Amino acid sequence: MRKISLNFLEQKAKEIIRKTLGDYILPDDIFSQLALGTIIDGDDRVFVLFIPKELAKDAIDILRVRMNVYSGEGFVEYIGLERKE
């Protein structure tokens, strides 16, 4: 089976992130600070939306989307935000 490109997986992850964030409270001052990183975990690529800090260990994870490199399927595995009522 052929692997799906990282660029394609990232675009799908961004779609999932946009759709998911609509249900959560994300203050404007935090929104402007967000960055997206990628973690390689076996056959998965985990796209992490986070607030960067001076030291990497102090970064604050906002949302994680796990994408499979073979199927292209993805799911949100962590959300560090308060849900809208």
Rank of each mutant, 00 (worst) to 15 (best):
E77R: 08
K19R: 13
L21T: 03
Y70I: 00
L26A: 03
L9T: 03
I16P: 02
I16D: 03
L26M: 12
G37C: 03
P52M: 05
Y24H: 07
Y70C: 01
E73G: 12
V69T: 07
K53C: 09
P27H: 13
L21E: 02
G80K: 08
I39Q: 15
F8S: 15
I25F: 12
M67H: 01
R45I: 00
F47G: 04
I79W: 06
I79L: 11
V76G: 07
D58I: 02
I39A: 08
G74I: 03
N7A: 14
R83I: 10
D29G: 02
I51F: 01
I40R: 12
G22A: 04
R45H: 14
E10Y: 00
Y78D: 05
F31T: 07
D41Y: 04
E85Y: 08
E73S: 12
G74M: 00
R66H: 12
Q33T: 09
F47V: 11
A56F: 04
N7I: 13
G72P: 11
E77C: 13
K84R: 13
Y78W: 08
S71Q: 05
K84M: 09
I4F: 10
I4V: 15
I40P: 04
T38Y: 09
V76Y: 05
L81R: 09
I40F: 08
F50Q: 07
V76F: 07
F50E: 02
I40G: 06
N68K: 00
G37K: 02
G80S: 09
G22M: 05
P52V: 04
I62G: 11
T38D: 14
V65N: 01
L63N: 08
L34G: 05
D61W: 10
Y78G: 03
I40S: 12
K19L: 11
L9R: 08
G72C: 04
M67R: 05
G72R: 08
D44Q: 05
I62D: 06
I39R: 15
L26Y: 14
S5I: 02
Y24P: 06
K84W: 03
K57E: 13
K19T: 11
I60H: 03
S71W: 09
D28Q: 11
G22N: 14
L34K: 03
I60Q: 11
F47L: 04
D41I: 01
E15A: 13
G72D: 06
F31N: 15
K3N: 10
F75K: 13
L34W: 02
